[in-house]
C-alpha cells in the first residue's frame, strides 16, 4: 500500500488529473521536476520488503540452450501452423475468373453495364468509389485526416506554437544540384498531380493518386529550397483550413445527393455528357476535395516527422 501511495505522485492518472485542472504548462513543469529528481526515497522504502524475492540467478549455459531450443521449436510450429491455415484457405478459394464466383453478382454487373449512364464517369472506378460507394471513400479520407491529426498531436514540438519566429529542428543546408533539378521538376510534378486529379473521372487516377503526387512535389520543394519557401504558402493554418473545407464539402455535397437520391427528389446534379471535362456530376469536385486532403496530409506528415511542425 505504501508503494501505491508513493507512486501516486508520478502515476499517469495523477498527471491526467493535474492536466485537467491546471493545463499544459503545469504538467510540463511537473514532468521536468520528476525527471530532475528521480525519487530516491522510494527505493529506500521499498527495499526492506524486497528480500522476499530471491535474487535472480544468471541462467546456466545448459538452461539457456534448452530455452533457445524451445523458442525455435515454438516459432517453427507457429509458422507452420499459420502457413497451413493460409494454404488451406487458398486451396478452398474459388477459381480465378469463374462465372460462379461470389464477386460476379448483380452489383458488379450493374456497375459495369450502367455505370457510364448513371454516373457519367468514363473511368468506371471513379464512378464506383465516388458515386456508388462515396460513403466509403469519405471514411477513407477521414481515416487519413485522423491519422494526420494524431501524429500532429504527438509530434508537434512543445516549444513551437503559432506566432513563434524560430523553427525548431536541424535544417540541413541545401544542395545546389538538387535545387537546380527541383526548379525543373517541382512545377512538372505539381502540374502532373493536378492533371491526375482533374482527369480522375476520364482517365486512370483520381484524388488519392494525384494528391500523393502533389504531396511528393511539395516535399521535394521543401527539401530543395528549405522550409521557409514552402511556409510562404503552406503553414499549419493552411493545412487546417484546406482539410476542414475539403472534408466538409465532401460530406455536405454527398449528403445532399444521398438525400435526394434516397427520397426520389429532383437533384440539380446531373451526369452530363460522358467524356467532357465538366461531366459526371459531383465526381470531379469530390476528386479535388480528396486530392487536396491527401496532398496536405502527406506534406503535413512529412513536416511533423522531420521538424515537429508543418
Amino acid at each position: 500500500m505504501a508503494r501505491l501511495r508513493d507512486d501516486w505522485e508520478h502515476s499517469p492518472w495523477r498527471n491526467f488529473l493535474r492536466w485537467l485542472r491546471e493545463g499544459d504548462d503545469a504538467l510540463d513543469r511537473a514532468m521536468i521536476a520528476s525527471l530532475d529528481a528521480p525519487a530516491p526515497e522510494l527505493r529506500e522504502e521499498t527495499a526492506p520488503e524486497a528480500p522476499a524475492l530471491p535474487a535472480e540467478e544468471p541462467l546456466s549455459e545448459k538452461r539457456r540452450r534448452r530455452l533457445r531450443a524451445i523458442y525455435i521449436a515454438l516459432s517453427v510450429l507457429l509458422c507452420v501452423g499459420i502457413i497451413g491455415v493460409l494454404v488451406r484457405t487458398a486451396g478452398s478459394l474459388p477459381s480465378f475468373g469463374g462465372a460462379e464466383n461470389p464477386a460476379n453478382n448483380e452489383v458488379s454487373r450493374r456497375y459495369i453495364e450502367q455505370g457510364l449512364q448513371e454516373t457519367g464517369a468514363v473511368n468506371l472506378v471513379a464512378g464506383m468509389i465516388l458515386d456508388y460507394r462515396a460513403f466509403d471513400t469519405l471514411g477513407e479520407s477521414n481515416v487519413l485526416f485522423a491519422a494526420a491529426c494524431a501524429v500532429m498531436l504527438l509530434l508537434r514540438a512543445l516549444g513551437w506554437r503559432e506566432g513563434g519566429t524560430e523553427l525548431p529542428g536541424h535544417e540541413p543546408h541545401s544542395d545546389i544540384i538538387l535545387q537546380k533539378i527541383s526548379m525543373v521538376l517541382v512545377p512538372l510534378i505539381l502540374l502532373y498531380g493536378m492533371y491526375v486529379i482533374l482527369n480522375g473521372h476520364l482517365s486512370p487516377g483520381g484524388g488519392f493518386s494525384g494528391g500523393a503526387v502533389m504531396g511528393a512535389g511539395l516535399i521535394l520543394c521543401a527539401n530543395a529550397f528549405g522550409i521557409e519557401v514552402t511556409r510562404r504558402f503552406f503553414t499549419f493554418r493552411t493545412f487546417q483550413l484546406v482539410s476542414l473545407f475539403a472534408l466538409s464539402f465532401y460530406a455536405l455535397s454527398k449528403a445532399y445527393s444521398f438525400f435526394t437520391g434516397a427520397n426520389g427528389l429532383h437533384s440539380f446534379i446531373t451526369a452530363g455528357t460522358p467524356g467532357r471535362i465538366f461531366s459526371a456530376g459531383l465526381i470531379p469536385y469530390l476528386n479535388l476535395a480528396v486530392g487536396l486532403v491527401v496532398c496536405c496530409t502527406m506534406y503535413g506528415l512529412y513536416g511533423v516527422f522531420r521538424r515537429g511542425d508543418v
Binding site: 544542395d175 544540384i177 538538387l178 533539378i181 525543373v184 521538376l185
Partner: peptide, 16 residues
C-alpha cells in the same frame, strides 16, 4: 528524361 533527372540526383545526395 524524368528518371535521368532524378536518379543521379538521388544518388548524389546519398553519396553526400
Amino acid at each position: 528524361g524524368f528518371l535521368w533527372l532524378t536518379s543521379p540526383v538521388a544518388s548524389h545526395l546519398i553519396g553526400r
